[in-house]
Every structure is written in structure tokens, then in C-alpha cells.
Design a protein around this nucleic acid. Sequence first.
DNA 1: ATCGTCATTTGT
DNA 2: CAAATGACGATC
Length: 683
Amino acid sequence: MTTRVPDGPSEQLTLLEGARRRAPRRSVAEPPPLADVRPVARVAVDVPLPHLDRPFDYSVPADLDAAAQPGVRVRVRFAGRLVDGFLLERSEQTEHAGRLTRLAKVVSTEPVLTPAIAALSRAVADRYAGSIADVLRLAVPPRHARAEAAAPAEPTQPPPRPVPGGWADYDGGGAFLDALYARATPRAVWSALPGPRWPAEVATAVATTLAAGRGAVVVVPDLRDLARVDTALLAALGPDQHVVLTADLGPEKRYRRWLAARRGVRRVVVGTRAAMFAPVADPGLFVVWDDGDDLHAEPRAPYPHVREVLALRAAHESAGLLVGGHSRTAEGAALVASGWARSLTASRQRVRASAPQVQVAGDDDELAGDAGARAARLPSLAWRTAREGLRRGPVLVQVPRRGYLPGLACGECRRPARCTTCHGPLGTAAGRGTPACAWCGRPAKSWTCPRCEGHRLRATAVGAVRTAEELGRAFPGTVVRHSGGDTVLATVPDEPALVVATPGAEPVAAGGYAAALLLDGWAMLSRPDLRVDEEALRRWLAAAALVRPSGDGGAVVVVADAEIPAVQALVRWDPATFAERELAERAALHLPPAAAVASLTGSAAALGQFLAAAQLPGSAEVLGPVAVASRAPGDDATERLIVRVPRTQGRELAAALHAAAGVRSAHKDAGSLRVQIDPSELA
DNA sequence: ATCGTCATTTGT
DNA sequence: CAAATGACGATC
């Protein structure tokens, strides 16, 4: 039903007040007129309540007619108070049966919410069972008036199409670039060759897109990768073509650069997670590098992931997508398996020519004869490889981060233990009692390891982490550098030195490392996380990719059980096949990404109400609840519930959860409750 | 937070 | 039986 626009009650109130103040005059003054055409403004109000997650209509006073354009920030009276909002569209009519309140104010005439980002934000909210207000807070940075007023720079001419460069090494690489240049929508999951060349390849893909007259967005996990891509883009595109966007720029710089993209002055945006929503005009390509890095998971509601957001954008905005990394996630493999994206890998010959030689040293192999090496618990092969490498250049030593890992593993083969019923991770609540599943809560009374048939369980705590000093003593007279924690080095000089780094903090050596040792593989492989194997391989490949090719003497030793598939994938340098296998395994166990999983955290009462209101898809499995550590001390006992459905029902699950959250918030039910779809950490 | 609606209580 | 009060729910 639609009605003509009546005038709102708020100005009548004002009139009454005015009349009372002046005199008991009976004459009713005309209210200021409304806009002649499209007098209705559809507004997304900034309230996070799920049951208010829809547009609200306001009338447009004539004096705001010109300023009240789609995309501008507005202030409106909502439920008695002034709230911020975005004007989504102007309309002739309203669906609303009652009277419309007038727009209180147009904050700025800058149309910050483009139609594309508005539609994307709705899609992201739907995907993650969240409210559009939460997504808009992530997608549109806070306004900064000075940045808005600054004179806009001139748009620049795009550079000519570059030569394919390194893309010729990938099967289908040339076709991918051709499709970008033809303004088509190529989608690829790319396993990059080892070495320092990937930023240049990203830059070539971006430059090709730009030459075709379209923009691009590139998202990398951290500032060190960002610096590399920034340098490569500058080389490929020249100055003034791209902007770098990060969350830590400060409000003015951040808004200024963001506006440069929105206004079409810059066609290319590169940045960390915050850049995933960047409003590039006519985008032709979205790139995410190293999508397995957990920095790509947004920690604020509704917890969207960069890869998923960029995939949605590619589909919505008819652009290409490039999901790249040295490794490959099961999610990447799923994009390929579904036929939506193609796999970009180099030939085996190319891989062999670029990769270092990788060897495995077992946990129980003989330790080196040298006293220092024995003290550092270095297997003989690892010690010899490092000593030999130190004659020719820097040697990288990757050691897992120190930390307590409250999980359980098989006492025989040390693989993480899973629930025999729902395949969730096993643990012991508060460190005592019977081991039980962390998802469904079933006690694991008689457990049998599916891999080695063992029956014993052991806690997976990483105690003894080797220190840089300890390792240094195994190589007397060698310079030891350390990167990790508070002191992360971006680069190290091209000279013999032992470079001890934690995963993710490995510096780049300009000429490549002569060798690398990947220590304590068992610790990497026994973390109580669903994605342990994928994550271990990702970290190993990232480190090994910094080592010279085997032809130049580059050698890697990983200390781990050689029979584990992730270790074999490293030796063969074949992340694509590993990811396929991982995907198949997860499908068999009903784990992501074959399943869509939601984690619901809150008080027992809140979870109960929520579940009662939720109309879950018929295929939904509800696991738990189990008690978890409360987020704030003094909170009510916190419980967690896992709900999973086959991936094909992911949309229905998200919709059902959002609707149930709406029922709860409309009832003003007590207790907070967090809904997370496909959480990055599922332990 | 504020306003309107509707049910219930209270005063005559 | 009308006016006053209060609980509730929507919020344009």
C-alpha cells in the first residue's frame, strides 16, 4: 500500500510551542513546503538493532531538496532522538501508512554511500546475519570536514597496457590478463610461485585493468606486504594512480584518500582489511593476497572476511577477482571446485625451477653431534643445512610462537583429536575432568585416533620454544637477528646471518635466503584449530618462498612427521592439490567451507530464547551448548552453540539467525548474544 | 528516548 | 461511565 506524503507531526509540535510562546492566536501558519518532486527520502538509520534493519522514509523539506541526494549523510529524528543515517534514495511515494517526519539535516552534500557500496553492504549484512548499520560503519569512514573541503586533485590518464611479465609462467595467466583488458569478469585462485615476484604480478594485473579503463582494489594482510605492493604499483602505474588505505592513517588522511577513490580521482586502492569496501569507480578487478591470513577476518560485527566481501563485490559489480597466495585455502579450492573461479598455477617444471629444495627431518632423527646444536635440539640434517647455507648468505629459522594451547592431541601420533560424532575439537574444561568435545559437549570416553588407532590423549601445550640465543650457540661466531613480537624486521641484509623469526614476521632478504629451517612442526600441527594443517602449510610456504631456488643452492629443512599431507605438500610445493584434498576431507566431516557454520555465544538464558525463536533450516545440526570462558569477568556464565548446515543452505541459515536476533531485540530480551557466521577461529 | 495505543484502575 | 494512569511496543 502506498500513500501520498502527509506532513509530519514534529513541526506541528513546534508550532504549538511557538503559539504558546507568542499569543493565543488562532491562525495556523503554513508549515514550510516540501520538495515538489520526490518528496520522500529513504534513509538507512544508524541503529544496530536487528529488528530495525530496514530503510525508513522521511519527507524532504523544500530547502533541503537540492542537498538531499542519494548517498549523502543525514540526521533524522528517530524514536525521539537525532540519529545519523545515509540517504539511500529519493522517491515519489512511501509505503509507510503513518505520517512522515522531515529530514532534520543534510550533514554534507558529499554522496559518500555509492549505490554499489549500499548494495554491497546489504549483501554483506545478509551473508553474515548482521545489520546494514554495522556494515556501513565498516564501509564508510568517519567524515572529516577539512578533508572534504580540500581541492580535489586532477584525475590522471591511465598508463598503456603492460606486458604480461611473470604471468606467462602460469597456465591461463595470459588469458586472465586478456579478460581483464577486455573488461570481462575473470575469477581466479592463484598459487603464486615462490620468490619476491608476486607484488609485481599483482601490479601487472592491476595495470592491465587500469589500461582497460577500470579501477581495482587490492587487499593484503599487513603493512609489510602493503609496502611491497605499493612499491610494485608505483613501478607499474607511475605516480598518482593509486592510494594506500589503512586504518591507522588518522581520520583526515584516511578520509582524504578514501574520497579520492570515491570521486574517481584515483582508480586504484591498495590497503589492509579496511580497504575491502573502498568505493572505486567502475572496478574491474578485486585482489586479495594470502587469504588464509587471519588478519583478513574483520573483528567487528558482523565479522566479514575480505575474501568473501571481495567475491561478493566481483559478482555485484561485474568485476574480476584474484585470490592469491603462495599457499591455497580450502575456501579458495571451493571457489575452483564450484566452477566459479579457475585455478592459476605454474607448470611443475616452473615450480621446480623457482622453489628451494625441501627436505624433512623427523622429530626423532638423530640430533647433530655438535654440542651447541644438541642444546638447541637441532636434528643433524637441519644443522648441516644451516651451516652450509651460512657460507652463502642469510639463513632463516622459523620457530612457532610461544603460547599455551588448551587442546588435546593423540598421545601416539600427536595429531589434534576430534570428536568422533561431530568432528569438533576435543578439550578439557578448566583443565580437569573427562575430555569432551568443545562443540557438542559429548565426553570422549573411549576415543580412538582415526589415524594411528591410538587410545591415549595428551594436552597440547607448547612449552620449550627455542630462543634466538640458544640457536645462535649452535653456530658460533654467526650474527643472529631476531624478528617477531614487538620487533618485526621488514628486510635483512644480504649477508650470512641467522635470522630467527616467528611465523608471519619473516623479513625479506634481497637476494633470497640461502636456507631456511622450519622448526617444531609438531607444535604447528597440533594447535587445536580446524585449519591447522592448512595453516601450517601456509606458514611454511610463506617462509620457504623467501629462499633462493634450488638451482641457486636454496635449501629448506622442515622438522616434522614426513607422512603428514601438509608436510608432503610442502616438499612437492603443491598447495593446490593439498587444498583440494583438504576440501574433500572437510566435506566428509561436515566442516567449513563445505558446511556453513554459525557460532552463537551468550548467556544460557539468551541462547535458549534465541533458539526458541529461530526457525532454522531443516538440515541444521545444533551442537552444544558448552560452557566457554566469559568475555568479561563478572559476566553471567557464557555458553556457546554451534549451528551448521550444508554450504548451499548458508543464506537460509543467516536469514533465520538474523530474524531470530530481531525477535529478541524487539522483545528487549536481556543478555547479549553474539552471532558469528563462518568464524575464522573455530576451536 | 518518545509517542501513541490500549488495557486497567480510579473517581464520581 | 468517564477520566486518569500505566504497560507495551514501535520507532518513518
